[in-house]
């Protein structure tokens, strides 16, 4: 040893047990353990325990995969569930149309339904529609695009979190060129909703929309209104959407970033000390 080496720590000992030391570090740890037979004994014991654990679990790993866990089986079951759900929605629409009376209204109401029903469960469609409507309303606003501006972001997010009953943090979209302007509280049919507005260097705007939403979790649903695109999804009782006047391919990575941003803030509190 040269005397300039970093002292051996508990993390080195763990890495020694797991065989994850770099060659240089390994030399330092080996030398240290040679001087400390009690610790060397401990490390050897932990290695033995790890090997015993692996051996005790090896049989489970070697078992053939049960048929019910085959991905094809799971996919088929999922399709059947979605179809059953679509039928329920379709039945509800028929009842609604029958009750509406006039032929013209019935045609207009029914027209988009089969397509939507085939593509998406109702809740994500509702979220996308609400988000697109809110986007249309406020994105053109010059004087008051937001209720609380980004200068008071902490206050804004605290307020929106409280009203929606879920911890919300404004996703950081700066790597896509979107800068937070601020946000506002909205009222939609299902209750309170939050809208965050972002702006890029060219003055274009993007909105992130959140409201409570029942329904099964979904992957992304895409909606197009003129030149405006929306991605919406449902996650743990809330519907989320990202809307901007851009195409699907440009919006997708932003929507993914927003999804990951919100998922992190929704993570259950773990850890005890």
């Amino acid at each position: 040893m040269t005397g300039t080496e970093i002292p051996v720590g508990e993390d080195d000992l763990q890495a020694a047990i797991d065989g994850r030391l770099t060659p240089e570090r390994r030399a330092a740890v080996d030398a240290f353990l040679a001087d400390h037979p009690d610790l060397a004994e401990r490390v050897a014991g932990d290695i033995r325990l790890r090997d015993v654990l692996r051996a005790r679990l090896a049989a489970k790993h070697a078992e053939p995969i049960p048929a019910r866990l085959r991905i094809a089986t799971l996919r088929a079951a999922r399709r059947a569930r979605l179809l059953a759900h679509a039928r329920t929605v379709a039945a509800a629409l028929v009842v609604f149309v029958a009750g509406a009376g006039t032929g013209a209204l019935a045609t207009r109401t029914l027209a988009p339904a089969p397509d939507l029903v085939a593509q998406a469960p109702a809740p994500a469609v509702g979220v996308a529609a609400d988000a697109a409507a809110a986007h249309r309303t406020f994105v053109v606003e010059v004087a008051h695009p937001v209720e609380v501006d980004a200068g008071r972001e902490a206050h804004l997010m605290q307020w929106l979190s409280k009203r929606l009953g879920r911890r919300l943090a404004a996703p950081d979209l700066s790597r896509f060129g979107w800068k937070l302007m601020g946000g506002r509280l909205l009222s939609v049919e299902t209750g309170a909703a939050a809208q965050l507005m972002y702006e890029d260097a060219d003055g274009r705007r993007l909105t992130v929309f959140v409201r409570a939403s029942a329904g099964e979790e979904t992957a992304f649903r895409f909606r197009r209104d003129g030149d405006t695109s929306t991605f919406a999804w449902i996650d743990r009782g809330f519907g989320f959407a990202v809307t901007a006047a851009t195409d699907r391919d440009h919006l997708l990575p932003v929507a993914q970033a927003v999804y990951h941003g919100f998922e992190e803030t929704a993570a259950p509190a773990t850890g005890r000390g």
Partner: peptide
């Protein structure tokens, strides 16, 4: 399956857990 079984120590419960996990993974 190995991880789930080590956590639950129960064959059925472990495979239920793996099934839930895979279904969720497919959705997402």
């Amino acid at each position: 399956r190995r991880f789930a079984w080590a956590l639950t120590r129960d064959d059925e419960a472990a495979d239920d857990l793996v099934q839930d996990c895979l279904e969720r993974a497919l959705t997402r």
